[in-house]
């Protein structure tokens, strides 16, 4: 009997995009946050270039406020797959006085990442930055191209994007410009989780149900940590939680959950009545929070 490849359309599309990146750019990099989307990207890149190695480095923009579990996981993955990891720290930009730390109740380093990212792009002369953003996450992201051109300042010109027709991706740019590439643009949160389940991809432990010191603010569950500002009357309690999305501690809220296997997570997502980014504190700043960040060079 002949063995016919059963194709997964989304996986195939992502692999196609990875290969276009390597063919069209001289110096690509994969933006790695340690979250499930960027871990999925690593698996797809592995598949795209097998039996060769992943032909570009990973860049982690470290806010210094990470969940320790994510960093541990990151280092293990890099080690196992023999990847080349570059880490740049937001703390350095703060120390150099390039950016000022936010203060107060909602202070976060999430916005400050942009400066560190743009500096790293300049330092290494990256011409393509591959990211795990998905169009279903947020309505400004729903407007993104697969190859999204940014100017010298990392800015997104959202009203004047290049048309993308058929599979024809145009990555031609001038010196100084760079392109943000989103191979899993067309995946939904459930697609990512189903893929992680199907491929048996390992993910950091914070995605699974665990006990954590937390407090509640604005209806969201925040991690109690020295990095997260807390008012005196915001009471810390141990709760059984997990994370659906992982940014740094100051911008990611937990959800109460007993799901401690991938199968249970998939089940939970299927019946969930809240969107993934409903737990992103950074999106709650305003209706246009994401669009504004993107204009400034965020991914």
């Amino acid at each position: 009997m002949s063995k016919i490849l059963k194709t997964n359309a989304l996986e195939s599309e992502a692999i196609y995009i990875f290969r276009e990146v390597v063919a069209q750019f001289e110096n690509p990099v994969l933006l790695f946050s340690g979250g499930k989307d960027s871990i999925t990207l690593v698996r797809l890149a592995q598949k795209a270039f097998y039996p060769g190695k992943i032909p570009f480095p990973l860049l982690h923009v470290d806010t210094g406020h990470n969940f320790p579990e994510t960093i541990e996981f990151r280092d293990k993955l890099v080690e196992e797959l023999g990847l080349n990891l570059i880490v740049r720290h937001v703390q350095d930009a703060i120390d150099e006085g390039k950016v000022t730390e936010e203060t107060g109740k909602y202070s976060s380093r999430n916005m400050l990442q942009t400066t560190t990212l743009l500096d790293a792009i300049e330092e290494f002369k990256f011409d393509a930055c591959i990211g795990g953003a998905r169009r279903d996450e947020e309505k400004a992201r729903a407007k993104e191209r697969i190859f999204s051109v940014r100017d010298d300042f990392g800015q997104w010109d959202e009203k004047n994007q290049r048309p993308e027709l058929f599979d024809l991706l145009n990555g031609k740019i001038e010196i100084g410009q760079n392109v943000r590439v989103f191979p899993i643009s067309n995946w939904t949160e459930l697609d990512v989780w189903s893929y992680i389940e199907q491929e048996h991809i390992e993910i950091p432990s914070i995605y699974f149900s665990h006990k954590r010191e937390t407090f509640v603010r604005d209806g969201l569950i925040w991690s109690a940590s020295k990095y997260v500002y807390r008012e005196e009357d915001e009471e810390v309690l141990e709760r059984i939680v997990r994370f659906r999305t992982v940014g740094d501690m100051t911008c990611t809220a937990a959800v109460e959950s007993d799901a401690d296997t991938i199968e249970q997570i998939v089940k939970e997502i299927k019946v969930s009545t809240i969107s993934e980014r409903g737990a992103r504190i950074d999106d709650k700043r305003s209706e246009a929070a994401m669009e504004k960040r993107k204009q400034q060079g965020y991914f």
Binding site: K139, A140, R141, K143, Q161
Partner: peptide, 21 residues
């Protein structure tokens, strides 16, 4: 739900393609 850009919501029109899932 679909007009994701500020300019679109301000003018009440769709300017660019949005992908919905």
């Amino acid at each position: 739900a679909t007009d994701g850009l500020v300019a679109e919501r301000e003018q009440g029109i769709t300017i660019d393609v949005a992908h919905i899932y």
